[in-house]
């Protein structure tokens, strides 16, 4: 196991470098951060050259990347468009988005697995058809439409939830945005669980467990669900990155000042340190989540052995 962890960590290194370099190239090579600073006016060439030098932009792209990475590892993410250090923005934005993602993740996992289990156990019956139709609908309606519609009905018309999120983003206010953020993934989790449960329900070990006279509850939770969850856990793990990216949309609808908001501001104002910094952290979270899933596999499925 220890060797496996080390091997996976080493495999992450080239992926991390590649991904961050790709983002770096997109932002620095395809856009022009200096021109963006001046908006529509053309900057004075001498001033532009000076800024370029100060921002290390007068070097080759790989050199710029190495320079940037060196700074990141000393905790210097550069300065945002507002003049604040990017790390300061991160300090205020990440706790909010992480809380939002956790709320969404909990809704996704609990409701998705629950619905999927219900549908998979009653395959072909009313509950199954209902869950399938519901998930199809949820996947088809884009998140931003669901967001505005729920915000309008639950928040503005019926006063069930708070239509906007208060300063500091308390958990209670995050339930509605979390639900919106989780909606599409929830549908995927439900469908995946359903297929997996329906497939495993016919497995020999389930029949054996029933024949042994185990209570149904134990057969379902210990035998059926545990085996069926393996592909679901994979999806949940890789989806953490997707949820944090999806927060760009949700945070805009509900006016939450998290990662999505800061990232969007960085893009609007064409501030490369903000964009590259936030995306780099998101990529690290994404890769870490993938690693965690791989390790969880061993716990869920002892048949998988890591050399």
């Amino acid at each position: 196991m220890g060797r496996y962890v080390i091997r996976r960590l080493l495999q992450m290194v080239p992926v991390f470098i590649g991904t961050t370099f790709l983002i770096f190239v997109m932002v620095y090579a395809l856009g022009d951060p200096v021109a963006a600073m001046f908006g529509d006016r053309a900057p004075d060439p001498a001033t532009a050259a000076q800024i370029r030098h100060a921002m290390y932009l007068d070097h080759s792209l790989p050199a710029q990347y190495v320079h940037y990475m060196k700074q990141i590892f000393t905790g210097n993410f550069g300065t945002a468009a507002t003049g604040q250090p990017v790390t300061e923005l991160m300090g205020s934005a990440f706790p909010v988005t992480i809380r939002l993602t956790l709320v969404a993740f909990a809704i996704e996992a609990v409701a998705g697995i629950g619905l999927g289990l219900l549908a998979g156990m009653r395959r072909g019956r009313f509950a199954d058809t209902g869950v399938l139709a519901f998930t199809l609908l949820v996947v088809a309606v884009p998140t931003f439409v669901t967001g505005y519609v729920l915000q309008y009905f639950l928040g503005v018309k019926w006063h069930v939830a708070n239509p906007a999120v208060a300063e500091g983003a308390p958990i209670g206010d995050l339930i509605l945005p979390g639900l919106v953020l989780a909606a599409v993934s929830l549908a995927y989790v439900a469908r995946l669980t359903r297929t997996s449960v329906a497939e495993n329900a016919r497995a020999d070990y389930v029949r054996t467990a029933v024949a042994k006279g185990l209570p149904k509850r134990r057969v379902v939770t210990v035998h059926l669900l545990r085996n069926s969850l393996i592909p679901v856990v994979t999806f949940l793990g890789t989806d953490i990155g997707g949820l944090m990216a999806g927060a760009v949309v949700t945070e805009r609808i509900f006016n939450i000042h998290g990662v999505g908001y800061q990232l969007y501001q960085g893009i609007l104002r064409q501030n490369p340190p903000t964009v590259v910094g936030f995306v780099t952290i998101l990529v690290i979270i994404f890769l870490a989540a993938n690693l965690l899933v791989d390790l969880l596999y061993a716990v869920l499925d002892p048949r998988i052995r890591y050399a």
């Binding site: 997109m26 990216a245 995306v279």
Partner: peptide, 14 residues
Amino acid sequence: GIPILLGGVVFLSV
């Protein structure tokens, strides 16, 4: 390693 929505926002904005 790049969530597609995130990549889209970055790429298409530049």
